[in-house]
């Protein structure tokens, strides 16, 4: 898998963020889910190495927290790429060819659903219905909707996107 592993090795435990979140919930162990949600909102992911500390503070075993963090689809234990592609794989999009669009994304970027490109540029996620069934198949890139996709249009969108990003990088 081409996921970025770099921030996993070296990043220090974000004590400050965890303490601040714990404070809002007064260390309530039944609030593990909202605590994890707030940590992810602040850091964009739940750092694995923070789980032990979190467990100590709550008086709950790290295994339990890890279990919850991996049970729910919302939590990410790795940081996201710069741009997030969310491909809708709800029923309506499936019927209208979301799988072909997904294959195209995989072919173009070399990553499967749930992975991030090696250069940390794109994270590709497959998500349940995002509610624009009448525009299906649909994907969101950084929140912007791209509708009625075909393999052809998908490839063009990704190419254009990559081109734009390269330009920005040169300018920076």
């Amino acid at each position: 898998m081409a996921a970025t592993e770099k921030s996993l090795e070296s990043e220090a435990i974000p004590y400050e963020t965890i303490d601040r979140v714990l404070d809002t919930y007064k260390g309530d162990p039944s609030a593990i889910i909202p605590i994890l949600q707030d940590i992810q909102e602040a850091l964009d992911y739940v750092p694995k190495e923070g789980i032990g500390y979190l467990g100590d503070q709550l008086g709950v075993s790290p295994a339990k927290i890890y279990g919850i963090a991996t049970f729910y689809a919302q939590f990410r234990l790795q940081p996201k790429g710069k741009h997030t592609i969310m491909l809708c794989v709800g029923t309506a999009c499936h019927v209208n060819g979301a799988k072909l669009v997904g294959n195209t994304i995989t072919d173009e970027l070399g990553i499967k659903g749930g992975e991030t490109t090696g250069d940390g540029l794109f994270t590709y996620e497959e998500v349940a219905c995002i509610g624009c069934c009448s525009l299906s198949p649909v994907m969101l890139i950084d929140g912007e909707t791209y509708a009625m996709l075909t393999p052809k249009s998908t490839r063009k969108i990704l190419k254009d996107f990559r081109g734009k990003t390269d330009e920005q990088n040169e300018n920076e």
């Binding site: 162990p29 039944s30 609030a31 593990i32 889910i33 909202p34 994890l36 949600q37 279990g67 919850i68 049970f71 729910y72 689809a73 919302q74 939590f75």
Partner: peptide, 25 residues
């Protein structure tokens, strides 16, 4: 308001209650 965290099974009422209590759903 309690935000769900992405588990279809939580639509089942006893799983939903477990999730509300902070457990795996």
């Amino acid at each position: 308001i309690k935000k769900g965290a992405g588990a279809f099974v939580c639509g089942e009422e006893t799983a939903l209650i477990a999730s509300l209590e902070g457990e795996r759903g």
